[in-house]
Design a protein around this nucleic acid. Sequence first.
DNA 1: GATGATTTGTGCGTATGTATG
DNA 2: GCATACATACGCACAAATCAT
Lengths: 239, 239
Amino acid sequence: MESFKLKKAQPFYEQLYHRLKQMIIEGELAPGYRINEVKIAQDFHVSRSPVREAVRALEKEGLLVMNEKSQLTVYKPSLKDIEELYQCRMSLESLSVELAVANAKAHDIEDLENLLNQTKAAIDDGADRRMIIEFNSQFHDLILAISQNCHLQKLVGNIRALTQFYRVMNLEGDGRRETIFKEHQLIFDQFKKGNPEEAKNVMKAHILHDMNHLKQRFIQKFPIGGDVDETLSHSRHTR
Amino acid sequence: MESFKLKKAQPFYEQLYHRLKQMIIEGELAPGYRINEVKIAQDFHVSRSPVREAVRALEKEGLLVMNEKSQLTVYKPSLKDIEELYQCRMSLESLSVELAVANAKAHDIEDLENLLNQTKAAIDDGADRRMIIEFNSQFHDLILAISQNCHLQKLVGNIRALTQFYRVMNLEGDGRRETIFKEHQLIFDQFKKGNPEEAKNVMKAHILHDMNHLKQRFIQKFPIGGDVDETLSHSRHTR
DNA sequence: GATGATTTGTGCGTATGTATG
DNA sequence: GCATACATACGCACAAATCAT
């Protein structure tokens, strides 16, 4: 049963879109899980109309997948997806940082520095995983914002939902927090130097490292054929 | 022996999505035009439910824009959009061609060559604009297909709708058909040489040239503030 | 296959909110 | 402001497709 309360502010379909997205990314809706419009509607105490509209949007983002028989299931990560998505990220985010370095005003650089300082403090405090993930995401988002290209932001947004699937896994392993932080620092250095070309290279290397780490973790966790989970598709009879 | 499969009719919301998209790209629905769900539903003799679902999808693609008061209007091109979108294309399609050159099998290279030959023939025949646009798009699409990265294809698809807005304008001007063809040829040369790195550069240059040409045309056509059209918002009383 | 149970697709009524005069 | 017209958001009912037995 779902106890999430709907606020009347945004339209229902909008709120449902965000909430369902969050549920998928956080694993509340397991990969491969079959979605049922009626059940969602009941859980949220709304009709199917807004649910359907939200679902269409999630489909376009790849978080929900529809088969030939109009059945919806939750996105299921795979090794090939990691490779494909991180190739895309390398391409888009290296453009992002290139533009950002070229555009950056003094206060932008300050913002980045503050964010890194906060992150450093959080790491030293042994802050919880969720917070580190959040700070790391913010670093990439801030650069994106500084780059001042709305369409680029949208595109990165389009795959972000899927890449966030992997953010948790990305922190697993020895010294990952520190490694990622150091690489972010390297990117920041190029902001101070005002060198877009080199910033691009460092960003590309950073995302490549993440990708390689993820691929390795993924193979370790799901050695056979890359199938994430077959057992969860039955957890449907909640109601 | 192959069994003959009948296609099941697509759901209305799916068909509406494609049709509306086409209408927007081809200018049947003018930029800035205010969309009315009820009217669309009446025009297509369906109810508002499938219209709403189609509209949500188009919104996510940026072809329809919703303002704070829940009013929908058709996307309106701008100079800044040209720059932003073509920067994104440079990034994504240079990745695309890089991967494609690395992956390309003999038959892929043949396919590309055939396509270029057809294009050449069409240009020499003075074929109609629509056909040239189609061939040029196919060239980029084929490379994308060869690159074998589904997510990359999706991302390019996400901005394609908007860039197609500009494809017509892109052919306007002296010798544009020939110029574009020559640049496609240069890209193809790198396939034969099997040089991904250089293919990338040539592709980037190609899209940059298109962008610069478009910006110039755009300024010529809409000198004041980049506003495409104010007069068309009235052409609604079709029914 | 035939039948009942699910689930998706679609039409339509109504409430709420927004523009217009 | 006020009344009217109109657009959108949502709920609900029924039809069509699919699944299970």
